[in-house]
Simulated scan of single mutants.
Amino acid sequence: MSAAQAMRGAAAQLAELLGTTPDSVSALRPAQDGWTADVEVVELERVPDTMTVMATYRVTLDLQGQLLGYERVRRYARGQLDRTR
C-alpha cells in the first residue's frame, strides 16, 4: 500500500467512525506492521473560526490499510500555534 493510499484510508475510516469529515492528515509514518497517521478533525465549530475546537487523532492501520485503532492525542483551538523551543 502506498503512502497516499494509507493517508486516504486513515482519513476515510476515521470519518466513518466519528461521523465527521477530517480536516487534514498532518503526519503519516510507516510502522513495522502498517502505518500510523495523525488526522486533524473539527470537534466543535465556533465563531470566530479561530476559536473552533480541533483534535488530532492518531490512527493505526495494518499492512492492508484496515484501521486497527485510534486515539485522540490533542485538542486545541484552530488559531493556536505550537510553541517550539
Rank of each mutant, 00 (worst) to 15 (best):
Q5I: 11
P22N: 07
R58Y: 06
L68F: 00
S26M: 10
R29E: 15
L68T: 08
P48W: 01
Q32C: 04
T21P: 07
G19R: 07
M1E: 00
S2V: 06
G9S: 10
M51C: 05
Q66L: 12
P30Y: 12
V42T: 14
L17Q: 12
D33A: 11
V39F: 03
L81C: 04
A27K: 13
G19P: 00
W35T: 15
R74P: 00
D62Y: 09
T20Y: 00
M1Q: 07
D62F: 10
V25S: 01
A55H: 05
E40A: 05
V59G: 01
A3Q: 13
R74A: 14
T84P: 02
Q13H: 02
A3K: 11
P22I: 05
D38P: 00
S26Y: 01
L81N: 03
T21D: 12
G65Q: 05
T60N: 15
E71I: 12
A6Q: 06
A3T: 08
A31F: 06
L63P: 03
G79C: 06
G69E: 08
T50V: 14
A55C: 08
T36G: 04
D82G: 09
D62I: 06
R29I: 12
D49R: 14
R85V: 13
W35E: 02
A10I: 06
V73I: 15
G19I: 12
Y70D: 12
R58A: 09
A27P: 01
V47W: 14
E40F: 01
A10T: 10
R29Q: 14
D62N: 14
